[in-house]
Write a protein that binds this DNA or RNA. Structure first.
Length: 586
RNA sequence: GCACCCGUAGUUCAGAGGAUAGAACGCAGCGUUGCGGACGCUGAAGUCGGGGGUUCGAGUCCCUCCGGGUGCACCA
């Protein structure tokens, strides 16, 4: 159990013992101000009213009780207290200060369990399906997809670090009027040409061409509709073209996903769901949730729930996207019996998902409340909103390529071998890309500034990788044997006297576990990002003030190396949860 | 028109109802004959959009106004 949870249960017990109060919502958090200790609680405020006492008095009594019941840590056969101080602070907080010995021991624990540090069993035995990416096969992926991909894959990692069984799934929009638009233009102007560039970009150009032409000639919309009709009728020629163009797009995405290190356990295709969901529409009709209107369309009435009505079946009886989504959810539940299903989809679809979830709930599916829309905000560029009109469209491949270029320029002086430069630049670029997007709270709209995220200074991916590489370099110089469990048996220092910066750094490492858990509960990769940056800053500050290799004594040096190694472990693990790979040198 | 989201330093963003609102970039300075100076340190910079309310306590919750964005049935 992590230390925060231990403090919480310790407080609950003390509150019960002193005041006989049960079921008090105990809240423990990490204060920003170091003077307030490593953890603090406001529980005295919460119970002050019930007890009709002054918060500070309660805090005083409680901290006394808590300190006498001080948690113990066993070390080398001896028992030490975990806290050096548990004291009240006006107007009624209780602040907990960890002992340096505990912090020292914690760094040793990290040394001994690097891979699993920060993991927990919160989701043990539970299955969670994460649907993300969901691109359409008419064009390359843009930076918005990149944000989606990064959030989805990071969440998957965080959830599985918290014990969940995670199924990553991609639902591809491989058919629909938008696909027919690029097909139409290829038929008109393609002349049977094969891709002469990254094939998804090649297809995307025909789609862009369509948008241009439609401005001049709105008639072509009807032609696109006609193509869709032919596709649905199974027209061999259209099907063959569709297959060919989609395969180009998949080929292009293969590289996009490989560059971004994005993976899925399962792919679903919209084209395979043609006309599924009719049953569901009929069920809705039966349950009186939906009605047939004068044109024959089946419409779910949601006005009572403060939502717009939703068409389930067209008047011609064919199903639309939402019907397929209803069926997909049902099939998915039957297949996995998931405890939760996440839809990582941009915030513009928020109302759509409210409709979808409401319909499923009204249909009586008890699992409807397990569906969650993870809404992420829109990405725009410093130049303004992305749009094909203004030409400030940035596709994900171009952004990545540009980032690689920038990073290559940065590192080429410190690395000699050209091939290593290229490899490293790609990793640094991806770190810049992912971190730049994930550090912002997912729900917020964001402005993605390519030049800023690529920098080696500031709150960036490269800064974090640099910090990691720096730590590793010290360890290497010291001949510190890297690897799990190498330094588990160390003599306990009689007393540990830490440099203030060292104390702060060691304290920060303790918080990793609760940050992982909170990131999992809140579905918020940004929490990990902020935490990792905090650790990196504290390490660099420590590094500036405390000589490691020239420490006063051998044992002192060893302690500092444990700490440095622990930092590298936490950075590596934290970044991994964001889907970012570290580099040893850069 | 209705609904949802967002207004925090010049800029990009953190802030789980708590303590003196933080960081990064940019700006002005400073630092090792020391482990990676791609770093660190110091400083200037804020009526948390305005106004009410709830609370011991509000940037955070509620109401309202202003400003910005997004979505509203046979597209996906």
């Amino acid at each position: 159990m992590d230390i925060k949870s231990r403090i919480e249960s310790m407080i609950s017990e003390a509150v019960y013992k002193l005041y006989g109060l049960d079921k008090i919502d105990v809240c423990v958090d990490a204060p920003e101000n170091e003077d307030h200790g490593d953890y603090s609680t406001n529980v005295a405020f919460k119970i002050a009213k019930i007890l009709d006492k002054i918060p500070f008095h309660i805090a005083t009594e409680l901290s006394h009780e808590l300190f006498s019941e001080n948690l113990k840590v066993e070390f080398e056969g001896k028992i030490y207290p975990i806290f050096v101080k548990i004291e009240p602070a006006a107007p009624g907080f209780i602040n907990f200060t960890l002992s340096e010995l505990f912090l020292f021991q914690n760094t040793l624990i990290i040394n001994g369990c690097e891979d699993v540090y920060g993991s927990n069993d919160f989701g043990k035995g539970k299955t969670i399906v994460v649907e993300y990416s969901q691109p359409n096969t008419n064009k390359p992926q843009h930076v918005g997809h990149a944000r989606n991909n990064f959030i989805g894959s990071s969440l998957s990692k965080i959830l599985s670090h918290c014990g969940y069984k995670v199924i990553r799934t991609n639902y591809v929009g491989d058919i629909g009027i938008h696909i027919c638009k690029s097909m139409l233009m290829y038929l008109k102007y393609g002349n049977g040409k094969e891709p002469d560039k990254k094939p998804d970009h090649f297809v995307g150009e025909f789609y862009a061409m369509y948008e241009e032409e439609r401005e001049k000639n709105p008639e072509i919309e009807r032609e696109a509709q006609e193509l869709l009709r032919r596709w649905e009728a199974g027209d061999a020629e259209i099907r063959a073209l569709w297959k060919k163009m989609n395969s180009w797009v998949y080929e292009g995405w293969k590289k996009t996903y490989a560059d971004q290190k994005i993976e899925f356990d399962e792919w679903e295709y919209e084209s395979e769901k043609v006309n599924v969901g009719k049953e569901i529409a009929m069920l809705a009709l039966e349950k009186g949730l939906a009605e047939k209107d004068e044109t024959g369309a089946i419409i779910a009435r949601l006005e009572r729930y403060n939502l717009p009505d939703k068409v389930l079946l067209r008047s011609d009886g064919t199903s639309i996207y939402s019907t397929k989504d209803l069926q997909l959810a049902k099939d998915c539940y039957e297949k996995y019996k998931f405890d939760k299903r996440l839809y990582v989809v941009d915030v513009r679809q928020a109302e759509y998902f409210r409709q979808l979830f409401k319909i499923l709930a009204l249909l009586g599916f008890e699992w409807a409340d397990k569906l969650v829309h993870v809404a992420y905000g829109m990405v725009s560029l410093p130049e303004g909103k992305m749009s094909s009109r203004t030409g400030v469209v940035m596709n994900a491949d171009d952004v990545f390529e540009k980032l690689v270029e920038l990073e290559e320029y940065e590192i080429k002086n410190s690395i000699k071998m050209p091939r290593v430069v290229k490899e490293t630049a790609q990793k640094v670029a991806l770190a810049a890309f992912k971190y730049g997007m994930l550090k912002v709270d997912a729900a917020q709209d964001m402005i993605f500034n390519l030049d800023l995220v690529a920098k080696f200074e500031g709150n960036t991916g490269p800064y974090l990788l640099y910090t990691y590489a720096r730590a590793r370099s010290v360890l290497e110089k010291a001949g510190f044997e890297l690897g799990r469990g190498k330094y588990q048996h160390v003599a306990a220092p009689k007393s540990v006297l830490m440099h203030p910066k060292e104390r702060v750094l060691a304290g920060a490492l303790v918080h990793f576990q609760e940050n992982v858990l909170e990131a999992c509960k809140d579905l918020a990769p940004s929490r990990i990002a902020n935490y990792v940056f905090d650790v990196a800053q504290k390490f660099n500050s420590f590094y500036g003030d405390v000589p490691i290799l020239d420490a006063k004594s051998e044992s002192r040096k060893r302690h500092l190396l444990y700490l440095t190694y622990a930092v590298s472990v936490v950075l590596k693990r934290g970044l991994d949860l964001l889907g970012i790979e570290v580099v040893e040198k850069m």
